[in-house]
Amino acid sequence: MLTRTAWLGRLAPALLGLLVVAGWEALVRFNDIPSYVLPGPLAVAETLWREGPGLLAALLVTLRVTLAALLVAALTGVLLAALMAQSAWIERSLMPYAVFLQVTPIVAIAPLIIIYVEQPFLALLACAWIVAFFPLVANTAAGLRSADRGLQDLFRLYGAGRLQRLRLLLWPSALPHFLAGLRISGGLALIGAVVAEFVAGTGGSETGIAFRILEAGYRLQVPKMFAGLVLLAITGIGIYGALAWFSRLLLRRWHESALPPRS
């Protein structure tokens, strides 16, 4: 059951959103602002409804790139972090290159990737992967190092092998860190996919939502740009929400971050 304050806590942001939207609509109407300059929320909603199917199909293309990149980033991130956990030397040799990928702006690398990787889906995936990859490696590597010292002694005492240590001790210790990285990377993968689409222009037969926004811009279909933006924002929030849920699901039995408050 939600208490009164909890209800108010949920109501307040919704109310604020409603006020802003209403104010925006009023502003557009009373000043007669043409929709190619600033469309009102009703016009955006109407466009969203009319162009919905086309935009959703485009969104699906972008979403496919995003999720594939996130998956690949998770796999390669964990693999690389596990490799780094084997020795300080490996970590010291690899980390600078991971940082290099992280700090170089994706907008600057994307054109090169799009030239060298011919298959458009793979090119977009590579761009999104580069953006999503670093938080996963860095967090997982930190997590693998965070295993309790007492438990490390215990594993040594019982003569645990490298793999047993990794699987039974280091990986569970790293899991909360990995999941925190995943929540960050989910949003980043979407950004990476969008940037790559902008750079790639008309990539292949299927075009993603970012390219549709760009295209609508060329044609001064501003309401459609807003509609695309709304869909992207909702998708970003959805990805974050899904990953947060997934994280709670995995940690709810034991980790402080997911345990219910003491009552």
Partner: peptide, 17 residues
Amino acid sequence: PGRIGYVFQDPTLMPWG
């Protein structure tokens, strides 16, 4: 291995199990 049992100052349990 296993012939020595050790109880640390803290319980040192795996919270995930």
